[in-house]
């Protein structure tokens, strides 16, 4: 049975790129364990011979022509929500030391 420790929660938070407060780590360790315990009822279900489902309506590889289409948006319009820009590019914090 899955019981998430504080370390497990911190590891998950790191994978998900979220910082958590100390209280949140405790809270999530309880809550996520309860949720995982609930979904674990699937472990006993016999699914032999069954394929998995990714897509319900049976569509596969929907193709279109690879052509540029003008939707009429100005670049500055599409960039208006970006926190920081420079010369029509996204500006982000330093990545390497």
């Amino acid at each position: 049975m899955a019981k998430l420790t504080r370390d497990d929660v911190l590891h998950l938070a790191q994978l998900a790129r979220i910082s958590l407060s100390d209280d949140e780590v405790d809270e999530f360790s309880e809550e996520l364990s309860a949720i995982l315990q609930y979904v674990e009822q699937l472990s006993n279900v016999d699914v032999s011979g069954l394929q998995l489902t990714n897509q319900v309506t049976g569509l596969t590889n929907v193709m279109r022509e690879d052509v540029v289409k003008d939707y009429g948006y100005a670049p500055q319009e599409l960039l208006k929500n970006v926190p920081k820009t420079k010369d029509s590019q996204l500006r982000v914090k330093r990545m390497i030391g």
């Binding site: 979904v39 699937l42 472990s43 279900v45 699914v47 069954l50 394929q51 998995l52 489902t53 990714n54 319900v56």
Partner: peptide, 13 residues
């Protein structure tokens, strides 16, 4: 978890 759930999804379908 994930693959098992996708397979039980097939069962429901």
């Amino acid at each position: 978890y994930y693959k098992k759930a996708q397979t039980v999804r097939t069962k429901l379908i």
